[in-house]
């Protein structure tokens, strides 16, 4: 993963994703929704390259499925497109609202997919270590133990295979019993290790002073600049929302008010905010290519 935005300070990354996801769940205005859907698609493709196309296709199918299910469940709206079984109307407004639901769902899902690439667990622990020291320690221990225990499970399975008690041997009941036994062995092994770890922690002074946190990040001018731009865009978007620049009605009739200056400014601010990581990514790639071509 060589993404330029992920090299920024974790706080910048986190604020961006919180903003993108929360706004993505909030706005039902068509322009804002489209901005969110397309920018999330763009950034996801930039992150994943060709591998991302598969998920995008799934998302597209999901989008249409959700959009067309809505009018079947929701019969509000004045413009009836057609009726089916027993005069049940299929309305244009409900279909439009279905598009909103589908678009919202897909964009939030895609933002989360990007989040999973950028916000690794160490960044999360770094950000929240100061206010929940015990739980962030717990989290980092669990994150370490999970791969460790997976290896242990493989070891146990290998040993048990020699005596014909691997989890794949026997009929259903034996399989179940074998798997449970494996978990039981793992528990004994892990708990034994836990006590040793805990005693070692104690003798190194856990709990005797103020707990410090893992930290390899330091905010730089670049992070500040990105943060300020983001905050500016967020404020612009919120002002637009507060002044009613995103008002749109779906029922009983779909009304999209004429775009006024507030709405336009809001859309620009919102799009700029969502495009920021993509721009950073493309900028970095371009700089790299230009520099390399000079050699």
């Amino acid at each position: 993963m060589d993404d330029a935005f992920s090299g920024y300070h974790p706080a910048v990354n986190f604020i961006f994703f919180i903003g993108a996801i929360v706004f993505g769940m909030f706005f039902t205005h068509s322009a804002f929704l489209c901005a969110s859907v397309f920018t999330s698609m763009l950034y996801y493709l930039l992150l994943m390259g060709r591998k991302g196309i598969k998920l995008l296709c799934t998302m597209l199918m999901l989008f249409f499925a959700l959009s067309f299910i809505n009018p079947l469940l929701n019969t509000q709206g004045d413009t009836v497109l057609f009726t089916y079984i027993g005069e049940r109307p299929f309305t244009l407004e409900a279909l439009m609202y279905g598009f909103v639901t589908g678009g919202m769902f897909v964009s939030v899902l895609l933002w989360f997919a990007c989040y999973n690439c950028i916000m690794t667990s160490d960044k999360f622990i770094y950000l929240f270590g100061w206010c929940i020291p015990t739980i962030s320690l717990l989290l980092s221990m669990v994150l370490r133990m999970v791969p460790n225990f997976k290896v242990k499970i493989m070891t146990i399975a290998g040993a048990r295979k020699c005596v014909g008690k691997a989890p794949v041997n026997g009929d259903k009941k034996e399989k179940l019993q074998n798997s449970m036994d494996m978990l039981s062995v793992l528990t004994s092994w892990a708990l034994e290790g836990a006590v040793v770890t805990a005693d070692s922690m104690r003798s190194r002074g856990y709990g005797s002073g103020k707990q410090s946190n893992f930290s390899i990040y330091r905010p730089s001018v670049r992070d500040m600049a990105a943060g300020i731009i983001m905050l500016f865009c967020i404020v612009l978007t919120i002002i637009c929302a507060a002044l009613g620049g995103m008002e749109v009605a779906y029922f009983p009739v779909f009304i999209l008010p004429e775009a006024n200056i507030i709405t336009i400014l809001g859309v620009i601010g919102y799009t700029a905010f969502l495009l920021l990581p993509s721009i950073i990514h493309i900028w970095e790639e371009a700089t790299w290519n230009i520099l390399r071509s000079r050699i």
Partner: peptide, 17 residues
């Protein structure tokens, strides 16, 4: 205490794997 914390971490990890 450290022991309590580590045992809970172990239980979480077992639940996950």
């Amino acid at each position: 205490q450290a022991r309590e914390l580590v045992v809970i971490a172990v239980m979480c990890a077992i639940a996950v794997v």
